[in-house]
Design a binder for these strands. Structure first.
Lengths: 304, 304
DNA sequence: GTCCGCGATATATATTATCGATAAATTCCA
DNA sequence: TGGAATTTATCGATAATATATATCGCGGAC
């Protein structure tokens, strides 16, 4: 039994004529006759009583045609659901973000996305890279904004931008008026950093390996806490430049750029291979890349 | 979209694994994979998010699978209806009978049929051959018991029995004690017959052509009326022998057989070619042929 | 690392559906 | 009453589809 056969018997029941039913079904009359016959044999029932004058339905045939109609309606609802539900920009989208980026990037992304995909509410999860990775793989998240490297089997990513780091010192610090700082110089200072699970602290240490020997001070999960500590003259820190733009400025803190080579991190959007809402990904990429920020160097779209 | 494809996605949704779903569906894994892919492309939606670890469903995929399940259930009901409804011996059967046979044959048929096909109530229509023919062709009737000849396009028949005619005379009639009558002798008598639309009167006239010249008396639609008229000495008549058996005997009437050649009529059961309840026909034939009556000569089954 | 499991792919094959032409039966109309 | 038209069934050939076997690439697990 196939849906086509059901369509055929419904057409014959409507037209009471095999030839016209075949025309309406866009098949030849023999094709339709054979299909109907096949169905009748499979069901072991005569549905139509044929004659050269007209076609009549047997009592059981009427029931069968009525049921066939119901079946076809249900089948059409499958298509209907697909038609309505294939809007990839509808329904919530769970985005993971690393702690050192979330507070500064999301205020930019969310309004942009509300315009690009108004029916797609963004649900945000801030967490460590390692946790984001797990959640991504377990399909708890749809995508995640992370810092490279981020090589995870079954997960692909696309580059977003390069973000330079800056040094934040109290305005009463000896470096306060310097135009730039060399990364190596950090080794002599009391540098406040996020816990070691944070990729950002790792990257800072990577830029100034000496730090790891001097034992930098690790301070929780929030850059804002660290920023306040700097303002209280408890040490200096390094921030991603997105955390150093004007809107987050504190008058007690001076932001000083690094001298070349400026430490940077490369951010990317990651999602599962085979993820079904590519349009949502594209939309998100567009929203992020549209951010106008002097310190973020948006990167061209490059395959892998 | 085919029912098979819907079965496949339901299986995958159940098993969360293409290989197992293929096994349960009794097809190879590539066949199932391709079918699912084909459906996804047709619907323009991703139903499953595949990975090497497991198979997950997209939100729209869940809806589609649920609807697919509903569709398959409706499709199964088609089979169910066919299974339950293909009992050809269930449901009413409309049988037409000519006036000159109905009252005498039906009391024999109905009890027999109630045993052979208890779920098939017999609905009887007594009428003239011409009307029965129309109703048969228009599918108002399922079958009809008629006298031959009865050649109607689109209608086939099978012989039932030969029935001899007898002469019915009042017991005070001069012929009352005769052992037999020759058909030609009727020409001199006042013979009461049914209206001319009745095949039986035609057949009587056929047996004794002289009658038509002398103007026999035509009397309505009921042999019983005529019988009563004979009992009242208003004339004589000819009856089919089934109307002359003991149970219908009237003490005021003598039944006298014809001398050779005995006029007879040949009865048959007629039904449309392609009629869908052959079993019901067979049952009816069996019931009629099983009638034990000395005057009816049941005929062997012979193809037309 | 190496093996195992999973889904995707390639190619070949068998089945099925479909078509065009024609047949057989019947109706319609002159 | 006879022929044209109509209707469904049948036949033979072909196109479309479904399915199988073998294989690949990827990732997981020990």
């Amino acid at each position: 039994m196939t849906l086509n056969e059901l369509k055929f018997i419904v057409a014959v029941a409507r037209e009471r004529n095999f030839r016209r039913a075949a025309e309406k079904s866009f098949v030849s009359q023999p094709a339709l006759s054979l299909a109907v016959k096949k169905l009748e044999e499979e069901l072991g029932v005569t549905i139509f009583e044929r004659s050269h004058k007209d076609v009549a339905m047997t009592p059981v045939g009427e029931q069968i045609v009525a049921q066939a109609l119901r079946t076809l309606e249900e089948a059409n609802r499958v298509k209907e659901i697909a038609r309505l539900g294939n809007n990839q920009l509808a329904g919530p989208f769970k985005l993971g973000v690393i702690y050192s980026t979330g507070p500064y990037l999301l205020p930019e992304i969310i309004p942009a996305l509300r315009i690009l995909a108004p029916e797609m509410p963004l649900e945000v999860e801030e967490n460590l890279t390692a946790n984001l990775e797990t959640q991504l793989r377990n399909r708890v998240l749809d995508a995640a904004i992370i810092a490279l490297p981020f090589e995870v089997p079954g997960v692909q990513h696309e580059l977003l931008y390069d973000e330079s780091f800056v040094v934040a010192v109290p305005d009463i610090h000896p470096w306060a008026q310097r135009p730039s700082i060399h990364a190596e110089e950090l080794a002599d200072e009391k540098v406040l950093l996020l816990n070691s699970g944070h990729c950002f602290s790792n990257q800072v240490v990577l830029a100034c390996p000496e730090l790891s020997r001097h034992g930098e001070v690790l301070q929780g999960n929030s850059l804002e806490t660290i920023r306040n500590m700097v303002a209280s003259n408890l040490g200096i820190t390094v921030l991603p430049c997105s955390a150093a733009v004007e809107r987050y400025q504190n008058p007690l803190i001076r932001m000083i750029p690094f001298a070349d080579p400026v430490p940077t991190r490369r951010m990317a959007l990651a999602w599962r291979k085979g993820y079904s809402r590519q349009q949502a990904i594209d939309c998100l990429l567009q929203a992020i890349r549209a951010i106008q920020s002097p310190c973020l160097q948006t990167l061209a779209v490059t395959p892998d």
